[in-house]
Amino acid sequence: MQAPEAMAEPLIRMAQISKSYGNVQALQDVDFEVREREIVGLLGDNGAGKSTLIKVLSGAVRATSGKIYIRGQQVEIRNTTDAIAHGIETIYQDSALVTQLSIARNLFLGREPIMAPGFLNRMDQAAMATVARDLLRQVGIEKNIPPDTPISALSGGERQAVAIARAMHFDSDLIILDEPTNNLGVAETQGVLRFVRSARDSGHSCIFIAHNIHHVFQVVDRIVVMRRGRVVADAIDPRQTSVEAVEQVITGMAHAPASAPARPG
């Protein structure tokens, strides 16, 4: 008999995921889970397979084999629409934004608030602007950027912040951030880190991929390390492990520390 605690299903479970591009084996029999309200840091050298793994989850690429479970139910994720419908939101640099549209219109794209007595589904643009201002402040944009500014007039970091603001506002269960702090200024980076921390408090789970291992240590509950398409460590507790030890696991100079018996969550 298992304790009820151990039987609780993880939010996401990926089982035996493999992906090959021609004869490049990008992922090989990867098992990976994210629990409810858990922030997982995914580390590994360039080419280790981190992006490919999360692309399988976000519907951007399809695995060659393997299964995905959400709260114990097996699901098919064929495209990004499927992933969003399952509460999985991925933040890429800017491909998810319509550059011609304003910040406010992008934030609410597909979920526009409609004026109650309106004609032909008139959008409540005043409400959209108010929420947009508020969200931009929360993700650390200190400059006063009007919400009707087109995305094409924003810097890479500002675009990132808009994408993050959108994931925050429309409660996704799992928010995936693949190198979200690249090209960001100091204030913007702090905004992203603050957001990741607050995501757990508001009931979200997160997968956080970053080059800067110190950023990962600051915010995550658990670190998973990949090397050459395989998971080589999946239970590193950043509070009990040093940055140097994790760096050695990443480069393959040391074996993974023994799995911590008590997992967070």
Partner: peptide, 10 residues
């Protein structure tokens, strides 16, 4: 503007 992004937002 960006049909793929629009599609992804439903």
């Amino acid at each position: 503007g960006n049909p793929a992004a629009a599609l992804a937002r439903g």
